[in-house]
Design a protein around this nucleic acid. Sequence first.
RNA 1: GCCCCCAUCGUCUAGAGGCCUAGGACGCCACCCUUUCAAGGUGGAGAUCAGGGGUUCGAAUCCCCUUGGGGGUACCA
Length: 500
Amino acid sequence: MTAPRVRIAPSPTGPLHIGTARTALFNYLYARHTGGTFVLRLEDTDQARGSLAYEKDILDGLHWLGLHWDEGPEVAGEAARGPYAPYRQMLRLPSYAEATERLLAVDAAYPCYCTPDELDADRKAQEAAKEPPRYSGRCAALTADERAARVADGRTAAIRFRVGSGVVAFDDIVRGRVEIDVSNLGGDFVIVRADGTPLYNFTVVVDDAAMDISVVIRGEDHLSNTPKQILLYRALEHPVPQFAHLPLILNPDRTKMSKRKSQTAVSDYIAEGFIREALVNYLALLGWATGTEEEVLSIDEIAERFDLSAVHKGGAVFDRERLEWLNGQWIRRLDPDDLVDRLRPFIEADLAAGRIDIAPTDEELRALLPVITERLPTLGAIGDLVGFLWVRDLAYDPALLVPKRWDEATAGEALRAARTVIAETGAVAFEADELEPPLRALAETRGWKVGDLFMAIRVAVTGRTATPPLFDTLVALGRERALERLDRAIAALQEGSVPR
RNA sequence: GCCCCCAUCGUCUAGAGGCCUAGGACGCCACCCUUUCAAGGUGGAGAUCAGGGGUUCGAAUCCCCUUGGGGGUACCA
């Protein structure tokens, strides 16, 4: 058996969808596992809905995920590669025309002059009669003279494919044997619009045949298209590829995942700070499992274990909580320098949005890593976590400076005492190990709970009650700025501006 | 309506006739660790395997029916 050829064929009618990414991933995994070829083809014939911006979003997203294709079109400065070019449908128009001629020549297809109004009326009548909608076959047996008459009438023709009769069966790699009676296909279907542009069911077959695609891996929503396509393969006298229909990714209400009910754009996940390792890991485990208890796996480890026939048949609800957990797992596994690089764009974004005033240097960020990695569910959480380090003026409710067990006077006194200790200690070496013992000693001699003292200091220097470890935070802030913030907190308490 | 597909904890899943009084993970709860928050560790609640019939010495696993859910029914992809 020769190496399989698989493909992802996105249509640039919207940003890269999670579902498309998952289908691309499974194709990629199958290709890598079997030593096959992964092809990218752009289905850009829907000129009305498609756009270049979407095209870029899709390609960028695929690249970002690490789903690099072996063959594909020229895009964003990248040259086309592969022996089956072109890899975009608008450039393949002649091949559809040629295929159409072949079908017409053997009468496997015929021109249909029905107007939209006629078709509409047919459909309505069928609906009223409680019959399943199907093409009436009005133009199926027109004589040459009758056709000529309609052309003379100025009518243009769509091309319909003769569906015939019988049962189409195929062995789906994930679903097993599927059989559909051709009489349920809705009659002869249109393959070329009256304006001459080809339709999906036709172009996929012509392209997949031309590109020698041997395994078609796609979403379950295409299952019912498959018999039509098999009929087309036969009429075109091309071997029928294998099919594998993947279970759908679902909204929480178990309907097909949609923009209306879920976050579906991959770019939105990227913008939130999900990392590719996590998204790939998560998506691969939606509808498929290794059969072992391994859960956190790299794309290469997954490719090694991947088995299309073990893919589930039932749909899977997209669970963001689990994705976040995996994201945390992967963030903690990242190499520190890599993490600094990946964090950078999020810091820049915070800066641009005015959420912070100063950007840390790589060294500063790197030093912070040990205390922030385990607190980062997403990269985008960096600002929430330690943004207080990079703002000039801290804004917070002074009431937070007073721990539950204390009153304002105690808080003020504690902060003054702490300030003195920190000022003295820091003069030698401003390090966590140097700061902690004297502050603990202070709490002890005064009979304060360490937690209370530390909390007062924490709020004074960060403006928040939940932060990374206090002493690391003080060090990251620097001696001068820490003292400055303590002074401001003390002043705030003295002004009596703390509502109880 | 018609056609097709599917069905194990809330969610993702293991399970391919006896190893299952159904295992893991996320989430949830408790405890431990602990200056807060996380992370980590330990433990717990949570599924009569949709229901009913078969087949079999034996069924979550095989067959049938019912129910429920989903997908498709375009001169969209």
